[in-house]
Design a protein around this nucleic acid. Structure first.
Lengths: 251, 251
DNA sequence: CGGCATTTTGACAATCGTCAATCAGTGTGG
DNA sequence: CCACACTGATTGACGATTGTCAAAATGCCG
């Protein structure tokens, strides 16, 4: 919950009333165990789901049974804000760890966006950042060897989790198995295992149970070719134009 | 121009007045030669650019000089509709072939979206489809060998170009070099060359100059594991909710 | 025809996947 | 408390895919 509001703060300048509106918007929440689907390809849901705690992912299954994970969802991330426009889900969303998930009705979303331009801007910002992350993942996948790819992902999650208060300066909990990592990175489980070992023996990462520790963040970022610009986590010059009303009243 | 309107029609039910508004929205157009940047990383443009003719791409350059192409833009596609919210471009856009590009001022975009909910819906739809395409490319990159990957891209472009009237039932002009294809597919030029040969000798594609011919579309789609659902090119049950107003007045 | 970009080829090396087995950690029932 | 089952991590051997290098062939355009 606080993760959600912290995230939104990165997308717009919210005041106390805005934060209060967001808090009220969250209606029912539910607990879901690890490895359960929140929504499936072809679904046309009536509510919007939001991760409050735990890790989830967007994924597709291929005819030959392979799984491809196209996004990791952490607390504060929306699952399916967009599906009403597209008609139906073109992918699945499943939990990776046990999750707390909020359900927000369409009516509530409509109310928020009709009434509050700052919240609307924050929601739109979140959606565009997701797109930026997808582009960077594509670069990662296409042009970096698996060892750097892993390092890049670990850097990205450090930034994203710090943005919602779930990581300290150089470590965080990452509840993914190596098999799940292999579905993210598009390579074999064995290769993940060996690449992680390489990163560890290079002193770039350490692993204590489910917690990742990055002894020297700058060094890992350098090794992985990571630059955080695509996460757009600073609001600096972003408020000038009026064109944020682009998506006004699309029904 | 007609490509642009044809594309928008896939996103919402437009009437004659809507189409007229779209036609008027396009102000200055410019001709750009092949391999010129339309916008670069770090830019904060005041106008929105729209491809009217030709092929362009989104790309990033890596420190070691490698190029990664994360999206192909064809007539009807927007370049940077979103950048006002994010603050600055996190990637470059460059032409691949000579292009005709329209510049639309922010004021015009604001006017359209304030006044016309159907156009707003169509614009939002376009943005969400871009995201769906990114997800599918990520699957393609991570889980399919290069030969199928190429087949998949060729199928996707057939659908996208047919949607804007630039392809017939089984062929279209594809003005990309093999080197550019290698930057899209994240592999070496030599490997692209050999994979294309494999597709040709399997009778799955033919190449006449810059034109791709697909002798048997079903067979290629099958070979590549292509399903067009992620392009959301049919409007069927898509108009029920009101939540398309999600992005209303975000300034 | 000559120059240049693009495509094609061959030989070889590096990366990465597959298979199959072992090791380590955790929780359960007896 | 320990045997057992189960999941997840690790290892070795081997083969397949893909990259690199360098050269030759092809096509296009002035």
């Amino acid at each position: 919950m606080t993760a959600f509001i912290k995230k939104m703060e990165h997308g717009a300048h919210l005041d106390d009333a805005d934060r209060e509106m967001l808090r009220h918007a969250i209606g029912r929440t539910k607990q879901i165990g690890a490895r359960h689907d929140l929504i499936q390809e072809g679904d046309e849901p009536d509510n919007v789901q939001l991760i409050l705690e735990g890790f989830a992912c967007r994924y597709k299954l291929l005819p030959d049974g392979q799984r491809s994970i196209m996004a990791l969802l952490v607390p504060g991330d929306f699952c399916d804000l967009h599906v009403a426009i597209l008609g139906e889900m073109d992918h699945n969303i499943g939990t990776l760890s046990p999750c707390t998930v909020a359900e927000i009705s369409r009516e509530t979303v409509d109310y928020l966006t009709d009434e509050n331009p700052r919240i609307t801007r924050a929601l739109w910002w979140a959606s565009l950042v997701d797109e930026g992350v997808l582009r960077e993942w594509l670069v990662n996948m296409g042009r970096r060897p698996v060892e750097q790819r892993l390092g890049h992902l670990i850097c990205e999650l450090l930034e994203r989790l710090r943005a919602v208060g779930l990581a300290d300066a150089n470590s965080y909990d990452l509840p993914l198995t190596q098999e799940e990592l292999s579905d993210v990175m598009g390579c074999s489980l064995v290769h993940i295992n060996r690449s992680l070992q390489a990163l560890r023996s290079a002193g770039l990462i350490e692993w204590q149970g489910k917690r990742v520790i990055i002894p020297n963040v700058t060094r890992l970022m350098d090794h992985a070719g990571f630059t955080p610009n695509y996460l757009h986590l600073d609001k600096k010059r972003r408020m000038k134009g009026t064109s944020a009303s682009l998506m006004a009243n699309a029904n």
